[in-house]
Amino acid sequence: MIDNKDGNLSGRRVLVVEDEHLIAMDVQDILEGWGCTVMGPVASAAAALELIEGDLPDAAVLDVNLNGGTSEPVAEALRNGKCPFLVMTAYNASHLFGALAGAPLLNKPVDETKLRQELSALLADTASDRCSGT
């Protein structure tokens, strides 16, 4: 554990997958306000997978439903890369399936305090090892 206990998110690379662009922009601005570098935002699983291929983020924020598709393939790729992520959705936990199941869940609309806490916790858990884009 290094410096993330207090929620120091500065310099962390966070992938944002969200199909409603206005909401994506909102999340992006919040994250950038904390000093994070945002990857994306992207609106589809395909675009997300392309973006993170060989260049994993430190953490990710995933919406579940993406214009008829879902972010499950992204969740799977992130799990394979041991990269932590949280899910931000209008649905409840029973809708999380496959690689999305069991992920920390934040309900929409985004609560900045909770987002910061969850993200810090995710990064603190993995700060000591891996997931730095290698």
Partner: peptide, 18 residues
């Protein structure tokens, strides 16, 4: 309807913060 409301609230939040 619940999902729709949450999504709308997200949009409202985004409009307010932007």
């Amino acid at each position: 309807l619940g999902h729709r409301v949450r999504n709308l609230l997200s949009l409202v939040r985004a409009l307010a913060s932007r």
